[in-house]
Simulated assay, not measured.
Amino acid sequence: MSALNGMGTQASERGLRVKVAILGAGRIAQHMADTLTRMAQDKRYQGLVEPWAVASRSEERAEAFAKEHGIPKAYGSYQGLLDDPDVDLVYIATPHSLHAEQAHACLQAGQNILVEKSFTANAAQAGPVLDEARELGLLCTEAIWTRYMPSRKIVDNIIESGAIGQVKAASANLCYPTTHKPRMTDPALAGGALLDVGVYPLNFLDMVFGPKPLDRVESTALMHPTGVDEHNATTLLYRDGTMGLAASSMTMASDRSGAIWGTEGYLVCRNINNIEGIDVYDADHQLVAHRSVPAQLTGYEYEVAAAARAILDGASECPQMPHADTLRMMELMDRIRGIWGMSFPFERPSR
């Protein structure tokens, strides 16, 4: 266990940096490595985080990855990373079906974790991971980057200002043709559109409405020949009469828009997966305001910085994505899959 673990704000005052390791060497891991490299060279973050290690099941792949991104250590096994006493934070960047097992392993090794979305394959896996992190006093947070971005606060401010009146409904969609990626269509890897891209529209709605009680959930999906969802549409009806509409797909492209509808107007977010700008309209559909978002390194820096600061503060969760929100989203996706009758092989009772 490194000098930072267990030292909380004392470590921050001493100027110690959080050493970040990446578990996995796929596409998303490449983006994170690029982010860490840029953060280490940026005056806003260079005193906060330090790229430290990468682990893959292939030593050759790990070494090539480390060399490409200037990462000091490369491990040809996940166990090698778990045995490194200097690691402060592990970014878990493997398929959904592996997240729970690897999260437990990191926590038991005394390592804080930033787990790529979806957090796990289901709520039954998520709960014990979150419980273990709290019991051990280690940080565990979900890497759903939109929760950490400045755009979230901009949207909140517009709503709180009353510019669109009382919010009554919201919609969001995110669709990418990604069936060429084997993990997307593999039920054993918790594939399908919902857990990979559908999590973003649902999180968009949750950031608008929060933990309000649901009256009912209605959903439908078209299934891939392998048994996972190709595309889906879900309606959330809350007990207070508000409504959320979400859609996602792995076989088509969409405008990726998010809209929040109020009694006095509405706002439109361009690209809910990484908001590029926000337009505010009145009830006569006249554009009354445009809000730009700050320039970013890659967009991943916000979740990394939040996790690093939480570690230095001795926290077990990040306020941007507290454990309760992660568990609520996992339970919602379980409920949606239950409506479809869709389950993963590892969820079914063995005969």
Results as ranks from 00 to 15, higher is better:
Ser171His: 09
Glu116Ser: 12
Ala55Glu: 07
Val228Leu: 00
Ile164Thr: 01
Leu114Arg: 00
Ala25Leu: 05
Val54Gly: 02
Pro201Arg: 09
Gly24His: 04
His31Ala: 12
Ala55Thr: 08
Leu205Tyr: 04
Thr179Gln: 15
Met342Val: 13
Asp34Gly: 14
Met330Cys: 14
Glu13Gln: 10
Leu136Phe: 12
Tyr75Ile: 10
Cys269Leu: 12
Pro211Tyr: 01
Met321Thr: 15
Gly277Lys: 08
Thr35Asp: 01
Glu135Val: 01
Ala123Leu: 03
Ala62Ser: 13
Met329Phe: 00
Leu23Glu: 05
Asp255His: 01
Leu36Ser: 14
Met184Ser: 11
Ser350Thr: 09
Gln296Met: 14
Leu36Pro: 09
His285Phe: 03
Asn173Ala: 07
Tyr281Glu: 04
Pro345Glu: 05
Ser171Phe: 12
Tyr78Cys: 08
Ala109Lys: 02
Val90Gln: 06
Ser292Ile: 01
Gly26Arg: 10
Gly76Leu: 00
Trp52Leu: 05
Thr298Glu: 11
Asn5Gln: 13
Gly76Tyr: 06
Leu214Val: 07
Tyr148Ser: 06
Trp52Lys: 10
Phe344Ala: 13
Asp279Met: 07
Gly8Gln: 02
Arg256Leu: 04
Ser118Leu: 11
Lys212Trp: 01
Tyr200Cys: 03
Leu130Gly: 08
Val54Phe: 04
Val208Ala: 00
Leu332His: 02
Leu114Val: 00
Met243Pro: 00
Val304Tyr: 12
Trp340Lys: 04
Val18Lys: 04
Arg147Ile: 03
Thr234Gln: 08
Gln296Asn: 07
Glu276Ile: 03
Glu301Lys: 06
Gln102Ser: 05
Arg328Gln: 07
Met329Pro: 00
Met7Phe: 09
Gln102Met: 13
Gly262Leu: 05
Ala74Asn: 12
Pro201Cys: 07
Glu301Ser: 14
Ala3Thr: 11
Ala11Gln: 03
Met184His: 14
His99Pro: 02
Ser118Glu: 15
Thr178Arg: 15
Glu116His: 10
Leu89Gly: 09
Asp282His: 04
Arg216Cys: 10
Ala29Lys: 04
Ala307Pro: 00
Asp334Asn: 09
Asp83Ala: 13
Ala233Cys: 03
Gly299Ser: 06
Leu16Met: 15
His224Arg: 04
Ala246Ser: 06
Glu218Arg: 15
Met330Pro: 06
Asn112Arg: 05
Arg27Asn: 13
Glu218His: 10
Ser151Phe: 01
Met1Val: 15
Met321Leu: 06
Arg337Glu: 01
Gly165Glu: 00
Thr326Arg: 03
His99Glu: 05
Ala170Cys: 05
